[in-house]
Design a protein around this nucleic acid. Structure first.
Lengths: 166, 166
DNA sequence: CCTTAACTTCACAAATTTCTGAAAGAAGCG
DNA sequence: CGCTTCTTTCAGAAATTTGTGAAGTTAAGG
């Protein structure tokens, strides 16, 4: 990696942009809206893991309105958190790894609603019908997953600690 | 559950439809397109776990073209499989639980592409930069998940076997 | 208080996606 | 073969989603 004379590794905007757009495209393909995907990718690729609205707008060439909307969504699904710079009306947005891993894997709210729909389905179709049994088994699967994913995250934390040091 | 005089549990189309639309709505909210979601939910709620194109079209009040498109997508992501009724040009579509649990949890292709994008990002930004390190850790997380999810599915199969008998 | 910087909301134009009807394409069956 | 039944493809109308500029809101700092 090339370095500037200050000792700070240089950030090639070209490389950053290539990653941001490429990674965002994958998120879009997985069902996430375009702006939130791009904003999130930009945060991931930032040095400090935080960016202000203005920085996001400039880097991604989007309006303040678009930043606002994207960030509202990302905060809602706990993929980023918002911070107020003390003594300023400027806002900072941050990716915090642990937080977004959780958001990604558990999707708790989503799974909970799937389970709810399945429970109603079992009740409506009858637990003793073939379809009812299928729905019940699907429900059992989700319940299992939900519980097991929590354990998986613990294993991940242990794994990372061992790999990167605490 | 009420039964008809034939001994077959009755399927109240009203209940079926309520479930189908409700569950499909959750899938849509999770990022899946509307028609595939509805078709999939209808299959889940069917007695045999299979339906023909015509049945799907009639039940969901959609055109043959819409069925075709939805089913093409579902087959592509391995959530349903297509079968040819022997001695007929009629096609049947089937949900097979194991199959779609796999599809849902692993999303192998998706994760692989995420990993690829992250790897390029690490290379482009430099593994020795703060951002590069963040991407590398994210990559490590996905690699860990990918491997652990496979084990989770084995645990599920064991769990189910014990719960429902093989 | 007033000014001003920053974020948010809103209405709308543009782009995209979705679903349909119609036509074309397979494949069984005589 | 050719008739018939089913499925797929395709062009386009309709609906939805997206992103913007402009106006509105909030709060810091005189």
């Amino acid at each position: 990696m090339t370095e500037s004379r200050t000792g700070t590794p240089e950030r090639d905007p070209e490389s950053v942009s290539r990653f941001v757009e490429h990674f965002a495209a994958q998120l879009v393909e997985a069902g996430m809206a375009r702006m939130p995907s791009r904003v999130f990718a930009a945060l991931l690729a930032s040095d400090t893991g935080t960016l202000t609205s203005a920085e996001l707008g400039e880097q991604l060439k989007i309006s303040p309105a678009a930043v606002s909307g994207a960030v509202r969504y990302l905060a809602q699904v706990h993929m980023v958190s918002r911070e107020r710079e003390p003594g300023s009306r400027r806002e900072r947005y941050r990716v915090h790894s642990d937080q977004w891993y959780e958001a990604l894997t558990s999707r708790e709210a989503v799974i909970k609603r799937w389970e709810e729909a399945l429970r109603e389905g079992v009740a409506g179709l009858g637990a003793d019908t073939p379809a009812g049994r299928r729905l019940a088994e699907t429900l059992a699967f989700f319940e299992f997953i939900e519980q097991d994913v929590a354990q998986m995250m613990e294993r991940w934390r242990a794994h990372r600690e061992q790999k990167y040091g605490r």
